[in-house]
């Protein structure tokens, strides 16, 4: 049992006991950390709002048998502007949900951490880009090793006539490899998706209203299919 230092982005928390909260953090070195913040739900808690979701914090943890206890917290980045915009909060919710789904405990997750950090920074600093969530999801797929094939047929590697997309094959298909369950793609969508993959989250290409909608739907279905779970944050806001 000892004190140790770590840093992470708060993914979520849930009430625990009378006034405590279990806070789940994503640490670049140790992956997902489940910690207990004692008394954090009391208005006079010394932790205050430092352990709210999306906050990047430096923490001192007291190692416990099951859960580590947070003894000190200092904020590295709080993303205050993000929190004042409903659409940005919802986008950040999806970003957090995806890394929460793919990150493991006690397993370094540098790339997932950096991706989340870049995603939150892009939301904080600029106006909300309509494609930020699909672009983030595509990059998350890459981090986990399930990036969709977009430049060559997922079955044979050919780069001609890629106008179908198969969830099970893991990307675009050429006319020879078409299968029954593959989606027909609108012209230009493959290039549009590749553009999102290649761009930085803070400098995404201009939005094409028609392709943007298709891209969002396709990327969401792809991620849900391969993660084998529905993205609750997107489903919650489907009205």
């Amino acid at each position: 049992m000892a004190l140790r230092h770590d840093q992470g982005i708060v993914l979520r928390g849930y009430p625990f006991g009378e006034a405590d909260r279990v806070v789940v953090l994503l640490s670049p070195n140790h992956g997902k950390l489940r910690t207990v913040a004692k008394g954090v739900r009391k208005t006079k808690s010394r932790f205050g709002g430092r352990l709210e979701p999306f906050t990047h914090v430096d923490v001192v943890l007291y190692e416990g048998r099951n859960l580590d206890t947070v003894t000190q917290v200092s904020v590295i980045e709080a993303y205050p502007r993000l929190r004042g915009d409903l659409d940005k909060v919802l986008a950040a919710g999806t970003m957090v949900e995806v890394v929460d789904a793919v990150a493991q405990e006690n397993e370094g997750s540098h790339r997932a951490f950096l991706l989340l950090q870049r995603g939150l920074s892009a939301l904080e600093t600029g106006p909300l880009h309509d494609d930020i969530v699909p672009a983030y999801l595509l990059k998350a797929a890459e981090v986990v090793g399930i990036a969709p094939a977009l430049t060559a047929c997922a079955a044979c590697g050919s780069s001609d006539g890629l106008d179908r997309f198969s969830l099970s094959a893991g990307g675009v298909l050429c006319p020879q490899c078409r299968s029954g369950g593959a989606y027909a793609l609108r012209s230009g969508l493959v290039g549009y998706l590749a553009g999102l993959v290649a761009s930085d989250l803070s400098s995404l290409p201009p939005v094409d209203p028609v392709l943007s909608k298709d891209a969002a739907g396709l990327v969401r279905r792809f991620l849900e299919y391969h993660l084998d779970r529905l993205l609750a944050s997107l489903a919650a806001m489907d009205v």
């Binding site: 979520r12 919802l90 919650a236 806001m237």
Partner: peptide, 12 residues
């Protein structure tokens, strides 16, 4: 309260 991560949307 709305909690996208927990799947609680305005409809709930």
């Amino acid at each position: 309260a709305i909690s996208p991560i927990e799947g609680v949307g305005p409809e709930q």
